[in-house]
Amino acid sequence: MSFPVRWVPSRWRGAHVPAYLRAHPFYLAERDPDRHVVAVDESAEELGADAYTGEALFDETDEPTPALQRVIDFLGALARSRVQTDRACQALEEAGVLVEWPLSLNLGKEKPQRLGGLYRVNEPRLNALDAADLQRLRDAGALGIAYAQLLSADQRRRLEALAKARSREQKLPEADAVFGEPDLEQQIDWDQLDFGDEGESS
């Protein structure tokens, strides 16, 4: 098996690619609370027999190659970051600043799509916290997350615009979706083009 170090940008329109997606087709699978293993999505296009080129994952002694070790290190950092994020979110919950966020998005379908299970930071509640509570949030690494969420909330409009653009592209022929123009070669009258005298030498 080989490991491709690449990301297909045509499928992600955001300026920032989340680490979870950058790790694809690899991810950590939890075998028990204290043990994880590196797993791979065998159905991923990157592993297709036709286009797959990359680096070996294991050497002759079945030890991880540098390519796989980079994956392991990245996934380890991702797991540690998730633990820190969970701790920060728990601190926000304990401070009473998280509220349910019933979000409805217009994603180019007939009806707006309602998303459940979301929470957001309530800014008035955050601003009303005393110094001790704010310090606890700071020490838990939660303040940065809180303000990042508040600032990113309006990005839902951009998400709607990208979804509508994607919906329009899916209705176009493949070439039009990629280049935004029809096949120009079919519009050229090759018989009318003058390439000079074929017998003329330079």
Rank of each mutant, 00 (worst) to 15 (best):
M1N: 10
P4R: 08
R11C: 08
W12P: 00
W12E: 10
R13Q: 13
G14V: 01
H16S: 08
L21V: 03
L21Q: 14
R22F: 06
P25E: 10
R31P: 04
P33F: 06
R35D: 08
H36S: 14
V37G: 11
V38F: 08
S43K: 12
S43T: 15
A44R: 11
D50N: 03
A51G: 10
A56M: 09
F58L: 15
E63I: 02
T65W: 06
T65P: 03
A67Y: 09
L68S: 06
D73A: 06
A77V: 00
A77C: 02
S81W: 08
S81D: 15
R87V: 00
A88C: 00
C89S: 10
E94V: 02
G96E: 08
V97W: 05
R114V: 11
L115F: 09
L115D: 03
G117K: 05
R120A: 01
N122H: 13
L126A: 07
A128P: 02
L129S: 01
L129F: 03
R136C: 01
L137P: 10
A153M: 05
D154K: 09
L159S: 13
L162T: 07
L162I: 08
A163H: 04
R166W: 11
R166V: 10
R166A: 13
R168D: 12
K171T: 09
K171W: 04
L172Y: 02
A175I: 06
A177I: 00
F179Y: 15
D183F: 06
E185Q: 13
I188Y: 09
W190K: 14
D191H: 11
F195T: 07
G196S: 04
E198V: 06
E198A: 11
G199K: 11
G199P: 08
S202V: 11
